[in-house]
């Protein structure tokens, strides 16, 4: 912690640079010393204070996570050390304990008490932007949903932070945050600021 927070973004596939930029902006805005790293090797996981699992194709990302051993290393740090973690879209899927899906190829990390459904809102032509209410946020948040998953149900320690109709789109379980939308695609830094606050709370 001497040099501030070390935040890792899993750099396999998808919106990686967007998360890096957004985290950097959030660090700057909140005057938090810290660095952001793109992670493609399991050795690096040991060196970080927090982790982001970005959006992309969940089948592709989970395959590489598994093959490179990142899957087990991440799981170890989350379960044994409560590593603060944020998963967006595909990342949200990977954090779930259960999935309703035909693709058996997605190997879940199974760290959150929730069930997810891939592409729950339809194909790309049904992708949408919408203002949502997030618990603890004073103003609505413009959320970007791209072939987005939805959280169908939660149990145990998983708390709902936002929903659209009957579908849950943002949850928190202790140190883990999962969103079915893409906060890295907007200039609104509030979700990443919320994550930074979460990391700091864990640190103290």
């Amino acid at each position: 912690m001497v040099n501030g927070l070390s935040i890792g973004v899993i750099g396999i596939q998808g919106a990686i640079s967007e998360h890096v930029t957004t985290i950097k902006n959030a660090l700057k805005k909140t005057n938090t010393p810290g660095n952001v790293f793109v992670i493609r090797h399991k050795e690096k996981i040991k060196e970080i204070d927090a982790l982001v699992l970005p959006g992309g194709e969940s089948t592709t990302i989970s395959r590489v996570l598994y093959k490179t051993g990142l899957h087990d290393t991440i799981l170890e740090r989350i379960t044994e050390e409560n590593l603060p973690t944020m998963g967006t879209c595909a990342g949200c899927i990977l954090l779930a304990k259960e999935i309703i899906d035909t693709a058996k190829d997605v190997k879940l990390l199974k760290t959150m008490d929730m069930q997810v459904e891939r592409n729950a809102f339809g194909r790309q032509k049904e992708s949408f932007e919408q203002n949502i209410q997030i618990k603890g946020f004073a103003m609505p948040y413009n959320a970007v949903f791209i072939r987005a998953p939805a959280i169908i149900k939660v149990w145990g320690k998983c708390r709902v932070l936002a929903e659209i109709d009957e579908k849950i789109v943002m949850v928190r379980q202790e140190n883990i945050l999962a969103l079915s939308f893409h906060p890295e695609l907007t200039d609104d830094l509030r979700v990443h600021e919320y994550f930074l606050k979460m990391i700091k709370e864990t640190k103290n």
């Binding site: 595909a90 992708s127 919408q130 203002n131 893409h182 695609l185």
Partner: peptide, 21 residues
Amino acid sequence: VPKLKVGTEKLKKGFAKMQKG
């Protein structure tokens, strides 16, 4: 919640970003 927006530039370019790598 206000009416949702579909087919925006952000959604189109965002879809492409999800293919990166």
